[in-house]
Design a binder for these strands. Structure first.
Lengths: 226, 226
DNA sequence: AAATGTATTTTGTACTACAATTGAACAAAA
DNA sequence: TTTTGTTCAATTGTAGTACAAAATACATTT
């Protein structure tokens, strides 16, 4: 076995075209709505078959970076970043290290959104959150869905759409990692109701500490694990 | 104009095949390394041309979900989620609302990683961080690259590879939003050196407050803006 | 003027053909 | 026996043609 020798990169034409188009779009500084050349023009310009061009274009279409209409042609459009993220976030094929990383990322967010929360929160929001927290004591199945509802509402309250959708994506990861660790989900010492109270009171520092305490079991596991 | 009638979903074959394959992979619970049927088999099973199948497969290849070798066929592989994210993160075509959202997301992370930081930090890390902080006072260009180095090191110290790469991706967003707001980048009242001191001392609460103070100008802008 | 038909352009799909790669099997040689 | 070379076959990769489908522009009819 020969060490330290890497196989030469044999990029497919489709991939090369993808990169080439990326450069082209950047160089032309296209904005959403701008038209791009036809498939045939691109194929001719790049010296490849229309087939290859279409394989590359298909990639951009998946990302939502370009849209196409018959007869009209293709235009740039703004991509759906969260939707794209969803496409690769498949717990069953992701390696456990990355899953763990994402789990930690979500933990960090959970604590980090507190400042946004206190900027954007409204009384109506807190009312709703309180109603969710009121249902905290239930069976195991309901507890999990309640947990999701509560934290989901918190993200929603930040008024940050991307963040909210992002969190929704990370949910399955959360469940998966917890299951992976075979640990019975154990709650921290601070309940949802406690958190609502702190939020209502407007005590940001106390809320942050409370949230951390709420998540403490997870952090404890991290500390012991790695 | 006829109301209340939605155009029939005209998904392209390639898109339908993509979805279909997604289901198939999930149902079969494929793991990285597992072989999938050949292009011809898929085309026959789905009742479409090989062409269409290849356009769909091209998408998966971009995400790193499948790899192909001539003669051998195709296998599932674990996707590069950060790399995928990079492909859609193009500040020039993203709408400003999403850019703003991502900016906030990064702010939240910056504060939220403190707990991970205190679990994983080492003296050697802090030494390095201190060295970076020592160069804080310089010209404008250097100040920005120093800023990047400092915060980058912080993410690195979390021992979370995904987080680190994720932050690296968000950097251009950060720069872009700041420029967009036409605001001269102004520092908070807590310097990098101060943060290092707090980190060294091991005072987590103080560090968190310090970090927030460091980022305060950004939060102030948010408060005023929306 | 408004509806309708027609031509044309561009994307979407299908099919064929062949090149390139590579694993496998087997043969030849050291 | 182990290595090296050769041939074969299977599968992906690329090219090209043909035609269907949609949508625009324009002409025609009413």
């Amino acid at each position: 076995m020969v060490e330290g020798i890497k196989p030469i990169g044999a990029k497919s034409m489709a991939e090369q075209v993808e990169l080439s188009l990326r450069d082209y779009f950047a160089k032309k500084s296209f904005k959403p709505g701008d038209a791009i050349p036809t498939e045939l023009e691109l194929a001719a310009a790049l010296g490849v078959s229309r087939n290859v061009v279409r394989e590359a274009l298909s990639r951009f279409k998946m990302l939502g970076i370009i849209e196409s209409k018959k007869k009209v042609g293709m235009i740039i459009s703004n991509p759906d970043i969260v939707g794209t993220f969803e496409k690769v976030l498949n717990p069953t094929i992701m390696d456990t290290a990355t899953l763990q990383d994402l789990f930690e990322l979500r933990l960090a967010l959970e604590v980090g959104i507190a400042d946004l929360l206190f900027i954007r929160k409204t009384e109506a929001d807190i009312d709703e959150l309180e109603a969710i927290a009121a249902n905290e004591t239930r069976g195991d199945f309901f507890r999990i869905s309640n947990e999701i509802a509560f934290h989901g509402k918190l993200y929603e309250m930040t008024g940050n759409e991307t963040l909210k959708n992002f969190q929704k994506l990370l949910l399955p990861i959360f469940g998966y990692v917890v299951k992976l660790e075979k640990e019975k989900q154990v709650s921290g010492k601070v309940s949802h109701k406690d958190l609502v109270k702190l939020l209502r009171k407007g005590d940001k520092e106390a809320f942050k500490k409370g949230m951390l305490a709420h998540l403490q079991p997870h952090y404890d596991r991290l500390k012991a694990h790695r």
